[in-house]
Design a protein around this nucleic acid. Sequence first.
DNA 1: CCGACAACCTGTGAGC
DNA 2: TGCTCACAGGTTGTCG
Length: 277
Amino acid sequence: MPELPEVEVTRRGIAPALIGRRLASADFYAPTLRYPLPHTARTEFVGQTLINITRRAKYLLLDFGVGHLLIHLGMSGSLRLLPNEKSDTPSTPPQKHDHVDLVFENTTLRLRDPRRFGAVLWLTGDVCKHPLLAKLGIEPLDPAFDALWLKNHLKGVKTAIKPALMDGHRIVGIGNIYASESLFRARINPRTPAGKISFARLQRLVPIIKETLLAAIAAGGSSLRDFIHSDGSSGYFQQQYFAYGRTGEPCRICGQLIREIKQAQRTTFYCATCQAR
DNA sequence: CCGACAACCTGTGAGC
DNA sequence: TGCTCACAGGTTGTCG
């Protein structure tokens, strides 16, 4: 489920309950997700105190000082907090798709991931140099991501703007939903070759991307208070989409029917009138 | 460099 | 009601 906003909402939801707490145990209920779970490395992080939780792209990084636990939620992953029974046992036994319990003092962080595209890795040394992180592009909420940056990085790019926006080697965190939504709001046709978009349009697009992501984070943030009792989902689903998933429904702006096309094996939703070339 | 495509998995919903 | 098939919010790797 998660694009950048949901990962960020998750980070904000779990951080206050876990930072400064000692990891009492780590229980893995599967041998592997996308990659093998760090069964044998467990001794390196169990017993350590969690110093911080940061996010890079859609990766969460749990900093234990001696190394980082990297968590990716894949397409169907979610994290939630459970109160512990007797301070060292989660109050609810793991269900079918629960794969990891990080048992802290008083609170357990549980990873559920039905499709098992997620990942949990133990990284020591410079996390930025890890192959999964080293080649990641700019954070869309970084002030350095502006129209000039985008212009420079799309120069000569013939790929259509929609798949170009989703390429994490350029900009991270823009998944299928927010690529369609941002282009709709910026009135840019998703098939336009990325390098051919005018600077004026890029100046419109960049703040729209930031606003769209921030609005989604804010929507999720409104349910943060209940994170510990929730199912791990957020206000994310309550977003009112303009284009995403609305094939055949009238455009909220002009009334024309929203269309869908395939781009790079992913469905793109757009309004042929509002997003004419 | 680019695009197309398969792969990793399971659940869900549309259509018959 | 029950079956089959296409598809799903991500990312990597291979091939042409």
